[in-house]
């Protein structure tokens, strides 16, 4: 499982609605709102999927910028094939991020 965190910037009038919309993405969890900034995490199988989800944020009304803060990819089998099966088992029993 690839875990990343981002600060998503919005227009001030759209922050709350954008946060709700962001939380609707698969693997995305909204953790906090600071002014016009929304703190989110993405959990996905691979870096590619994580990027795909983050890139889609730009289509959310009011979103102006997407800043990546942290990404951990030690369990991405496309980057580290050795981690494959073990991490899949761990992922199956883990708390997948809130929808």
């Amino acid at each position: 499982m690839v875990i990343s965190s981002l600060v998503v910037e919005t227009t001030p009038d759209a922050t709350e609605a954008a946060a709700v919309a962001l939380a609707g993405f698969e693997g995305v969890e909204v953790h906090d709102i600071h002014g016009y900034k929304v703190v989110v995490t993405i959990e996905a199988e691979t870096l590619d999927e994580s990027h795909d989800i983050a890139a889609a944020f730009i289509a959310v009304p009011g979103v102006t910028n997407i800043n990546l803060i942290y990404v951990n990819f030690e369990d991405d089998p496309t980057v580290n094939p050795a981690c494959g099966a073990a991490s899949e088992a761990a992922d199956a029993s883990s708390d997948r991020g809130a929808r």
Partner: peptide, 21 residues
């Protein structure tokens, strides 16, 4: 990634992004 590591990584991710914000 075992659960304790995973928990640590997730907590790190949240803390870093909150601090950045």
């Amino acid at each position: 990634m075992d659960l304790s590591r995973r928990t640590f990584v997730k907590a790190t991710a949240v803390a870093l992004a909150s601090a950045a914000a």
